[in-house]
Design a protein around this nucleic acid. Sequence first.
DNA 1: GCCAACGTTGGC
DNA 2: GCCAACGTTGGC
Length: 137
Amino acid sequence: MAYWLLKSEPDSWSWRQQVEAGAKGTSWNGVRNHSAKQNLMAMKVGDEAFFYHSNEGKEIVGIVTVAKPYYPDPTDKTGTFGMVDVRAEKSLKKSVGLAAIKAEPRLKNMVLVNNSRLSVQPVTDAEWKLICRLGGI
DNA sequence: GCCAACGTTGGC
DNA sequence: GCCAACGTTGGC
C-alpha cells in the first residue's frame, strides 16, 4: 500500500467539507499539473493520503482513503487530466503544521518541504508513520 | 526545439 | 502584500 499527500486551500475545499461528505466520498478534481497527474494515476483503492491545508493553516489535518482509482476529470475540457475519489478516514488528534515538519530532521526530504507547489505528492512509509505519531494517532 | 514572458501557487 | 519557484505559453 502506498501513501500520499493531497493539498487543498480551505477556501476552495476544506477538511471539514471532506468529513461532511462522509462515506460516499468526493472526487479530487481540478488537478492540472502533469507531475500531480502521474501521482494520481499511481494511486490504488485503499491507499491512504494526508489531507493538507495550504495557505490557511499550513498543516496536515486528516487522512483520506482512495475509494476509486484514476478516471477522467469531466471538468477538464481537454480530456488531459483525471482524478480519483477519496473519502475521509479520520482526523488527526493534533494537526501537524508545516513548521513542525520542517523542524523534524527526518522529514527534511519530504516533497512538501522541497516542492511545496506540487498538489499531489508521494509520502514514504517512514514519513507516514512519523507524522501519524506527531498527529497523535 | 529553445527560451523569454507570463501566470499561478504558496510560504513568509 | 510580496516574491520565489515552478509550469506553461508562444514567438522565433
